[in-house]
Design a binder for these strands. Structure first.
Lengths: 151, 151
DNA sequence: CAAATATCAGCCTCACTGAGATAT
DNA sequence: CATATCTCAGTGTGGCTGATATTT
């Protein structure tokens, strides 16, 4: 018997248990709980990680581009970038080539911070998927990617 | 060329694309958009469907039990049951055997309404998963169930 | 002029918390 | 007394909308 276990939640009705959208939502809730807990000590949020990851991979970008590749709304990109600039993790300057845009850049401490968040999030993934074998986890990622890519 | 398509969203950075928790969250967002749209005409919400489904499968239940088997917070069960009772889809009466509890029951129109919602939601699942074969969709459901069961 | 960008103010749902009243 | 149920009031985040100023 696992002494640390919370009382087992009763089985959900079949109409929910077999509904892909319900299962997706429930597992996403669990995933968000775990990742939020993992990031709590850092003061960063999931949006912040997404923005840092995009800049690390694609280099300096406009806020609109950041929003498009991360799925974050234009309006929320503003808030995330504000917070990260204030922490010295990003730089923001007007784009000399296009007056409508800001060029957002990763600072050195931004890169460091990204690595830190990345390690914490990878730990949370293991917690989340510990019931699956590595091959099964990969299958899950592949299937989810295909669903996601056909929005 | 698909004339109805929205401009393809650019690829997400690898750090997100390969992060199970991010993929889960993104697909859950898509799933919720589709199901909310499917239910919009009915005036019912996802919580309402969950409560109706639980009562249909398990019979008359207390609100606490409804919350446990659907994963809905005690506090939100109150609101959902209020709304459904007001629409005549549920009955609520004190439990003669335990004065702390209400016994919530499905009415005849509650059963009808459940079937209606069920059909709409099944349609939304097809939209959501149209990129997968039936076997792949089943694999996805199995993997998500195993992740969900080990919270 | 039409389209794109950045920003702001604000909305709504959902998941969740804390506290109180009642009953076991 | 400790625990369980129901209810209410309220919080915070996330995803999203609409409008505006500016630029292309």
């Amino acid at each position: 018997v696992d002494e640390t276990a919370t009382p087992a939640p009763p089985a959900a009705p079949a109409r929910l248990r077999t509904l892909p959208s319900w299962l997706l939502n429930q597992t996403a809730i669990a995933a968000n709980r775990l990742t939020d807990r993992a990031l709590a000590e850092t003061g960063s949020r999931r949006y912040h990680f997404a923005v840092l990851a995009a800049l690390d991979e694609f280099g300096p970008s406009s806020q609109a581009d950041l929003g498009r590749c991360t799925g974050i709304d234009r309006s929320d990109v503003v808030a995330a970038v504000n917070a990260l600039v204030e922490q010295g993790l990003l730089g923001r300057s007007p784009d000399p080539a296009d007056g409508r845009r800001n060029v957002i850049t990763l600072t050195a401490s931004g890169t460091d911070h990204l690595e830190h968040l990345s390690r914490l999030l990878n730990g949370a993934q293991e917690e989340l998927l510990h019931a699956l074998t590595p091959a099964e986890a990969q299958t899950l990622v592949d299937l989810l990617s295909r669903v996601h890519d056909t929005r």
